[in-house]
């Protein structure tokens, strides 16, 4: 899904300058825990988060996240925007909650980034199957 479609579905705005709205994201991941971001995402993920400190951009960079949407109308501090512009990661904003922003995109056809092997193994240990 192209970023301009993402903005359309979430009625969002671009935060960083010169965002290339033709950029494609393959899947979405909603998380406020950076370790979850690092564990669950893949190259080409759209990250949706309510956390706005610069480490969100760092984690995104390490994990190969393509773009970040800040939810609940949160605008990140200048240092987060500066780091994102330096590392070339577009930042977008949504006024809706994490749940609704994700829901809108999932309904529009953006898939989830799938399951993490380690947590899946623990699920099987706990519930079988």
């Amino acid at each position: 899904m192209k970023l301009n479609k993402v903005l359309e579905h979430i009625e969002g705005k671009a935060i960083t300058k010169n965002v290339d709205l033709d950029r494609e994201v393959q899947m979405g991941c909603g998380a406020d825990l950076m370790s979850d971001v690092l564990a669950f995402t893949h190259n080409g993920t759209l990250l949706l988060s309510g956390l706005t400190n610069p480490q969100v951009v760092r984690a995104a960079e390490m994990a190969g996240v393509e773009a970040i949407v800040f939810v609940r109308g949160k605008i990140p501090p200048p240092e987060t925007i500066a780091l994102a512009e330096e590392r070339g990661i577009p930042l977008l904003a949504s006024k809706y909650t994490l749940f609704e922003t994700c829901g809108r995109l999932y309904q529009a056809g953006l898939p989830s980034c799938g399951l993490f092997e380690l947590t899946l193994r623990r699920w099987h240990d706990a519930f079988g199957g």
Binding site: D32, L33, M34, S35, D36, L38, A39, S49, L51, N53, Q55, V56, A59, F116, E117, L118
Partner: peptide, 15 residues
């Protein structure tokens, strides 16, 4: 509060 310290660091490294 920074989004870390959820006890996933070392398991993540392992993965």
């Amino acid at each position: 509060d920074m989004g870390f310290g959820a006890g996933m660091g070392l398991p993540n490294i392992q993965a």
